[in-house]
Amino acid sequence: MKDATLKNESLEKWQVHFLSYILGIEQNFLNEATSMNELPVRSCADIYKRGYKARLVESLGETYSATWWVLGDDDYLKLAEEFVASTPSRSFDLSDYGKEFPDFLKSSVVVSEIPFISELSRFEWVFKILFHSADVPNKENFLSRLSQNPEMKLRLLPSTILWRSNFSIYEIWKQRDGDIAALNDIDLELPEFILCRKLEGKVRMNYLEESELRLLQQFETPRSIDEAVASYQNLYGELTPESVQSLFSRIGVLGVLEGAI
C-alpha cells in the first residue's frame, strides 16, 4: 500500500463529476480519470454514458412496447433518447423509470400525427403497475350483505384501476404483437371505459358503460351506497331509482367492491 494520504472529499467529487458526465451535464470528470491502455479518457467515460442511455431506453421500451410498435423504431428511439436526456432516473428499480413518458409524448410533435399515442403510453403504465401489484381475489357480491347493514361503507379493491379514454386504446394495445396494418381495422376514436384489475395472477380488463365507471369511481374513497349515489348525482345529474338499482346490480357482479373497515 502506498502512503495513504487522506484525500478528503475526493470520493464525493469523483462521484459528482462522474454522474454529471454520464448525465451530460459537464465534462470535469475527464480530468480526474485515467483510461484503459491507449484509449483517450473520453472514450472510456463514454462507455458509461452510452450504457446509461441504452439501459433507460431499453427499459422504456419494455414498459411501452405498444407505444414503440405504433411509433416505429426511428421515431420511438428518437423520442426515447430525448426523454432519457431530459429525465434522469430517480429510482433504484429500472422498471420504475418512465412514469412521465406519457406527458412527454403529449407535449411532443408526434401527437399531431398520432393523437392517441400519449393515451396508449398512459395505458401501458397502468398495465405495468397492475402487473407488479398483488393478486386480490374476487369479492362476493356486496349486495347480499347490504340488507343487514345498509350504511356499510364500500371501497374499490386495491389492484384495481378505472380506465377511460377518448380512444380505443385497449383495442390498439391488444394488436401490439401483430402487423401495424391492424390499426386500419380499428375505430380509433371510440371512447373506452374499462375496469383494469389483477385477478388470479393476471391483469384482466372488463369493458364498462360510462355510467358504471362513473359509479365505481365514487368508491375510490370509502362510501356507503347512499353517499356514492349522492356524490354521483352531484357530479353527473339525477338518477332514477330504477337506474340506481340497475347500475348496482351490474357492478355488484364484478366483485371489485369490498367493505371498508
Partner: peptide, 8 residues
C-alpha cells in the same frame, strides 16, 4: 448519488 441512479 443525490437521488440520481446510474443503473450501472
Amino acid at each position: 448519488r443525490g437521488g440520481h441512479y446510474s443503473h450501472d
